[in-house]
Amino acid sequence: MSEKDMNSKVNEMLARSEANVKNSGKKFVRPEDEEREVVAPDGSIIKVNPIYDYFSGARPEEEKPRNGIVEKFLNWARAESIWVLGFGTGCGSIEIPPLVTPRFDMFRFGVQMRPTPRQSNAFIISGYLSVKTLKRVIRTYEQMPSPKYVLALGSCTINGGMYYDSYSTINRLDHYIPVDVYIAGCMPRPEALLAGFAKLKELIKAGKAEKANEYARNFDWYKANQKKIVKDWNMPDYNW
């Protein structure tokens, strides 16, 4: 398929997805998450909308870097202290545990695992990503504080890899969340992952890893793509 054909096809798909988003409605919202009225203990009637009451549905905003030397210093600190979210999304997650062993030891480079998205600033998408997992990935990604970085591991995140024709795994990760560094291979060895971290550090120090802002800028495009394939969208548009 040529590039032109592909582009027209993508545009067509986007048009369809917009229609899809509009009429998707509340089909998949669970009964306990529906907007409804409940009686409070004191007898008054209050409206609850669990999806939006517990999470902020506000749009992300672009956040400008600080000026000059302050931002440079902070970028250096960010580069030397990469906290990776411990979330294995596919087969590549088996390549991450060796990084904490004596043989590879990522702690030398200031890289460590963090158990919660609130405290991590790097997200490794490890290999193929099914639609079901993508939904969780989006939620988790949006909960991470900005500036945040995404490392895409393996060829499945680039063009679908060996699952390019599967009905349940996505083909191109960068249509759903912005990616800073791709680490090619099937599977990449832990050394490749370390090289990916080194590349990410370079990007951060050069001030080029501003993909969180890019996500905010192209928010509508990303959301349309996400909603096109996540059919049971029963969460706020932006949840953090």
Partner: peptide, 18 residues
Amino acid sequence: EFNTKEYSENTYFPRPGR
């Protein structure tokens, strides 16, 4: 009768040049 390749091409964004 479900064509998984066609579905994948229509749903997910295939990267050109494969």
